[in-house]
Design a protein around this nucleic acid. Structure first.
Lengths: 127, 127
DNA sequence: CAGCATCCATGGCGATACTG
DNA sequence: CAGTATCGCCATGGATGCTG
């Protein structure tokens, strides 16, 4: 992401390559999990913490903010005691979710094949 | 990826969450670029180096190896001088490419909306 | 409950020089 | 041409303790 010593700025790359740009926002390892989790309705913070496997509180917060900033998530605060916050997908995020579902389907379909390929690659390398 | 101090091993998370598993392999910032580039036919190393915007030689090599290991890419070496190596997609990678195309389409469609959302979020924060 | 602040380890990744 | 080897920075992300 940082090209300090070249003339190529990160900005230039982002402009030039929408693919990279999107993926840097969506593919942050946790983002998809959150989007999928929020897809079937508003979700609360703690709910996400339990649902998204292995995420830390810090990363959950950071990722939520990023997604909110990108206009993929709406954050609704209920001024109750104790506080209650709900996150829900925006329209464009719901659209994104459909594409992601295909990806997830693909993953599940080929999971076996992939790990088999990996095993065979590794044993071949151990020649 | 490392949960050293908890009882939760990386293995467990990978088992439990195919989504994360796939994305860790596919969403490595460069993988998609490479897959898209290789989608219309066999590509050579240097060709990829030029095509995939901003990638370093090191990361290109590493990502290619990873994709080959996962059975998404086939590496063909022509024993000529100078050497010639071609990378082409496997069937499951071609399938993946279709899903990725949808993602890329989505990205291009909403690029403007997203950066607008980001700007508005940032100005609101500068209150 | 929801989240921010701080500290700290790891490794992702770029730059670069060398090789068959 | 198509890599491999080495070095070093800094971003990612976990752990943890504090707050409205």
């Amino acid at each position: 992401m940082s090209q300090r010593n070249t003339g190529v700025t990160p900005q230039f790359i982002e402009e030039a390559c929408p693919i990279v740009e999107v993926l840097d926002h969506v593919a942050g390892k946790w983002a998809i999990g959150i989007i999928v989790a929020a897809a079937r309705g508003p979700v609360r913070f703690t709910e996400l913490e339990r649902t998204v496997n292995g995420i830390s509180r810090r990363m959950l917060t950071l990722t939520l903010r990023k997604l909110e900033r990108d206009g993929l998530l709406v954050r609704t605060v209920y001024p109750t005691v104790p506080p209650k916050v709900e996150y829900s997908l925006t329209d464009i995020a719901r659209e994104l979710h459909e594409s992601l579902s295909l990806l997830v389907d693909w993953a599940e379909r080929h999971r076996g094949t992939i790990s088999a390929a990996r095993r065979s690659y590794d044993t071949a390398a151990a020649s």
